[in-house]
Simulated assay, not measured.
Amino acid sequence: MIVLFTDFGIRDPYVGQIKARLAECAPGQAVVDLLHEVPDFNAHAGAHLLAALASNFPPGSVFLAVVDPGVGTPRGAVALQAGGRWFVGPDNGLLSVVAARAADRRVWRIAWQPEALAPTFHGRDLFAPIAAEIARGESPAAKLQQVDALAVEFDAGDLARVIYIDHYGNAWTGLRAVPSDARVSAAGGTFRYSESFGGVAKGEGLWFMNSAGLLELAVNRGSAAAVYGLEVGDPVRVQRPN
């Protein structure tokens, strides 16, 4: 299984081009669109989202992860094996939270370039063929050089910020394992804990631990982003009980 995780969006041709290359290089492999709305250019937010979402996929899954504002520059390109799964993408911190939280990890620098490599589309031309070889079970050893660690590593602890806003206007944060009696506030508003949306009145703000294990801010049958003016990067304050 090849899992796509990008900031490409779905209106443009980029995802289709990636899938066409995967169909060429790994015919018959299942390709799953996990997320193509990672906040634009935001490898930091993407790193925390990827770490939260990847654990729901079976061992052996190959993640093609591309949030790559430095494409075409000397930034590194890597393959990572962590937690029994593979991750292929830029060495810009995007894979670092997954790597840091895994008990077992191995890192390789991609030391190969195809004959045709568009300077602005390494996702299609560089990362997709490597991900395809791994998914086929054919180790691309001649194209990889093992290294001790990633070149760019973000802090793998919880991130007390909004990292993603879904189309409902719900705001995901980088916070995990928050107790239900904590006091949560953001953007000048205070949110009441509820296990799910229906536990508060229509139009009322709430926070809950979502299905990815992250603290999420929402409004019952409304948009937390619109009501509170929440944006990606906004700080979230959690006052834990004494």
Rank of each mutant, 00 (worst) to 15 (best):
A142N: 12
I10G: 04
V62S: 07
A135M: 10
G89I: 01
G83V: 07
V78H: 00
Q145G: 04
L150Q: 13
K143G: 02
L22P: 09
A52G: 13
G60F: 11
I2V: 15
A20T: 14
A160P: 13
A187F: 12
G123E: 09
V78K: 02
Y164E: 00
D181N: 15
W207K: 09
P114F: 03
A225F: 05
R106L: 00
G188I: 02
I163C: 05
L95P: 13
H122Y: 15
V66Q: 08
L22Y: 05
P179D: 11
A79I: 00
G70F: 00
L144T: 10
T6V: 14
G89R: 01
A212G: 02
L94M: 12
P39M: 04
G174Y: 06
V184A: 05
V107A: 06
R183M: 12
A20V: 07
A201H: 10
D104H: 12
T190K: 03
M209E: 15
K19L: 11
A149P: 00
N210W: 12
G16V: 13
A118F: 00
F127H: 09
I2P: 02
L230A: 07
G76Q: 01
R192Q: 14
S55V: 15
R221Q: 13
S55Y: 02
L214Y: 03
G76V: 01
H167C: 03
Q113W: 00
P241V: 10
Q17L: 12
S139C: 05
E231Y: 01
R240G: 02
L159D: 05
F63A: 10
H36M: 06
